[in-house]
């Protein structure tokens, strides 16, 4: 584990990766062989993912001069995030990858947020928390500490849902980053490092964090007469 710095491995082999994330807003990014962002677009807000996703994909492809560098992977942000929106980006990423016959890399969306923090101007020297709105007065929290040997943000505590009212008490003095948007390019950069290391970061099931709202019915109710 390398604390809050960009030391360690830097030779993530060249890939051209499309990153898609609809865990918060709708975001699509494209990174080139050198890991730099070729194009990135996003639309904020918890709604409108289904409407936005196609145009965002089209815009990124148009801006990213993809012809010279064929896509090698599609990275999908797997959440956590509100159910309905989250699925749209994953469905789009998978179908896009199928169309290009390239693999899909599943990336926890908080990893992308953490990488953006770590790659920022003043990377934290201590553990820090990524916080996103999980709706229903809950916050999704993942605690990170730097990057690991593969350059992937190191989650020291897995993602949990915390009632908003308890966040202060639970996190104490831990530095917090309240994130309202995930970068598609950051999702792609996390994927790039995972591919280079041959690692699987999360399963194919989205990080729903909640079971479906459904109750097994009790015996039929009397209707009265």
């Amino acid at each position: 584990m390398i604390r809050g710095c960009r030391a360690g491995r830097t030779d993530y082999p060249g890939r051209v990766i499309l990153g898609v994330d609809t865990s918060l807003g709708s975001a699509v990014g494209l990174i080139g062989h050198d890991g730099r962002t070729l194009a990135e677009v996003s639309q904020g807000g918890h709604l409108g993912h289904a409407e936005a996703i196609g145009t965002l994909l089209e815009q990124v492809l148009a801006a990213g001069s993809e012809d010279e560098d064929p896509l090698t992977h599609v990275a999908a942000g797997m959440g956590p995030g509100p159910f309905t929106g989250l699925r749209i980006g994953i469905a789009a990423a998978r179908a896009f990858a199928l169309g290009r016959d390239v693999p899909v890399i599943a990336v926890p969306s908080h990893h992308a947020a953490a990488l953006a923090v770590i790659e920022g101007e003043h990377p934290p020297q201590h553990p820090f928390a990524i916080l996103t709105d999980a709706r229903r007065r809950e916050t999704a929290v993942t605690v990170y500490e730097g990057i690991d040997v593969d350059g992937i943000p190191h989650a020291v505590v897995d993602t949990v849902l915390v009632p908003q009212a308890d966040v202060d008490r639970k996190l104490g003095a831990l530095r917090r980053f309240e994130v309202t948007g995930i970068s598609g390019a950051a999702v792609a950069r996390v994927a790039r490092r995972a591919v280079a290391a041959g690692r699987t970061l999360t399963g194919s099931e989205p990080l729903y964090l909640r079971p479906p709202d459904a109750l097994v019915p009790a015996a039929p109710k009397k209707v009265g007469s």
């Binding site: 289904a50 996703i53 994953i90 469905a91 896009f96």
Partner: peptide, 18 residues
């Protein structure tokens, strides 16, 4: 709505990809 959106996301991803 939530079910329709999964198909729409996939259809858009596929159409743009191809």
């Amino acid at each position: 709505a939530g079910a329709l959106m999964v198909g729409i996301g996939a259809a858009k991803g596929l159409a743009v990809s191809l």
